[in-house]
Structure formats: structure tokens, C-alpha cells
Design a protein around this nucleic acid. Structure first.
Lengths: 159, 159
DNA sequence: GATGAAAGGGAAAAGAG
DNA sequence: CTCTTTTCCCTTTCATC
């Protein structure tokens, strides 16, 4: 029922994860109160989740608009050649571009999905022409622009 | 040069944001040390960034694989009708589906972009048939599946 | 597994230069 | 902005059940 990268998590672990996904700075005391436990077992469970990398990172989520990155673009793209070397070369290229906050290698109609954060349409054009399209192996790009975020969460859905 | 939702951030603010985007649990003491400041101004700047919602949230990032959500899918979709009511109705529908971690209203070739986290392809099929496609206004869906994450960060790129 | 107590340290707030 | 102090609370560890 579970693959080898799955770690056994009981209902309490899942509750802890749920709460930490909403607020990384909740205290162990507050967690314990909400779970009807004392601090120590909560502390040990959290430490275990960190050690097993179920919890990967604690981060601050920043409002991109307020830092002057008001335009989010999504790019679906195809490459000319799909040899192992060419893929690795393209991925190394994309990994160096700071505007790219997501790059996924896909199965489906397109090869890669990119999420781009830039100031405005001028900056996007600069990104396309001077940063992305400098890769020779790129075949074509299909870009969309985010007008409104209906849902936007980093939380993994847990039953 | 900046729109009204932009907040004036100096170099120190940007440094604080950069560090908190990497680690939400860094202490003010550690921040102060890295910025060559004392704790008080760091404390006050962080509080200001929180109050002005430049920092929106502190969250724990969870390894989806390890919680049994090993399949990430991206759906681009089109609706039949684009009246204001129909759009709102579709958005309300999608907002209620837990598997959807992102839903963006787009300008471009497609109407909406969805990011989906599920256990496996069976769960995805169930999502499509029983949860997403129950909306009458849906025209068509183009799905892709993430094979590999090259870049995947929540950090907004800052110079 | 859990509890409870103790030591050390950070958070928060206020006063002064 | 820096420095300092004070209070309070949390983290972490350890002995114990």
C-alpha cells in the first residue's frame, strides 16, 4: 500500500503536519494543547519528522506583488532533442535563471513546465529573449499569465 | 516605478526576507549577526514586514511523496462559458476540492491552471471524473504529469 | 509510549543615548 | 539605530513511570 519512500505516519503525526503547514512558528506547547498531549512527545515527533525529512524546510511566504514581482507567468515548452545529454544541459541552463521558481520535467503534451516571477511584461520579455531562449535546444514556448489566484497553497492535502 | 501595493524595502529588508525565505525559524539573534546589526532593529523590521503582509505566512514545507501524495499533475483547462457568474461558480467549485493546491485564472490559451497532488494515477482518475468534471461548464482539460522537479522553490527571486 | 521538572536561551517591550 | 534591562515563555534535556 505504500512505497519505500513513504514513512509511517499516525493520526497524531498527520495532525502535527497539518498545523505546521499552516503555521511553522506554532510552539510545541500550543501543538501539545491542540493535540491533548504534553510537550515532550510533541517535541520528539516533530524532531522525528524533521530527521526523516517529512518536514523539509520551514519558510516564510512572501507577497510577490509587494516585493515588485507582480507578474506570474506559466510556460509550457518543448525541446528539439530529447537525448539524455540535451535534457541535462537544458535543465542546468534553467536552474541558473533566478526568475524561474518552478521547473518540472513532464510526461504529456509538453516537455517542461516553468513558473516565472517577474516585475512586469517588459521583464518577462527580457526573460524570454535573453535568458530562456538562449538555449539552442528550445523548440517552442506556450506562455500564460496569471490574472487571479483562486487557490495557492504550499500545504499537501492530508485526509 | 512602483505601484501602490509595493512597500518600500531597503537592502536590509531584502536581506531579512531572503534569509526568512530559506529558514522561517532563524532567530532574530542569528539574523542580527548575519546582517551586522543588533537584535532590536531586526526585531522591529521583521514585525513591520509581518504587519504590512510582505511576509504573509510562516509554513512548514512537507515532502508530498513521504505523505503518500506521490503524483503531481498539472491541468490546463478551458470553460464553455465565460460569464462572470459562470466563472465565479467554477472557481467556487474548484476551491472546495482538496487535491487542488493551486488554481490560477489565466490570460492566454487556457482559462485555468491547476496543480493537483494525489497518491497515484487511480486517484487522479477519480479526481478528474468525480471531482473536477462534475462541473457542467468545463469544456476540456489538458493534463501533464510531473516526472522530475528541477527547480521547486517558494522563494520570490530578489536581486 | 507518556509525564513533569530544571537549565538555558530567545522573544518581547520599554527606557536611554 | 544601538544598547541594556526585565519579564516571560519556550526549547531542550533528563529522570521517571
Amino acid at each position: 500500500m505504500e512505497n519505500n519512500s513513504t514513512i509511517r505516519l499516525d493520526a497524531i503525526d498527520l495532525q502535527i503536519i497539518k498545523l505546521l503547514q499552516k503555521n511553522a512558528r506554532i510552539t510545541n506547547k500550543e501543538l501539545a494543547a491542540q493535540l491533548d498531549l504534553t510537550i515532550t512527545p510533541v517535541y520528539e515527533r516533530v524532531k522525528r519528522l524533521e530527521k526523516t525529512a517529512v518536514i523539509g524546510q520551514y519558510v516564510a511566504l512572501i507577497d510577490a506583488d509587494k516585493t515588485g514581482k507582480g507578474l506570474m507567468a506559466l510556460c509550457m515548452l518543448r525541446l528539439e532533442k530529447h537525448t539524455k545529454d540535451k535534457l541535462a544541459q537544458f535543465e542546468a541552463h534553467v536552474a541558473k535563471i533566478p526568475e524561474v521558481t518552478e521547473c518540472y520535467h513532464l510526461a504529456g503534451q509538453y516537455d517542461y513546465h516553468l513558473k516565472i516571477l517577474v516585475k512586469d511584461m517588459n521583464a518577462f520579455q527580457d526573460f524570454i529573449v535573453n535568458k530562456l531562449s538562449t538555449n539552442e535546444n528550445l523548440a517552442n514556448i506556450q506562455s500564460s499569465f496569471v490574472m487571479k489566484k483562486i487557490t495557492d497553497t504550499t500545504a499537501v492535502p492530508l485526509e
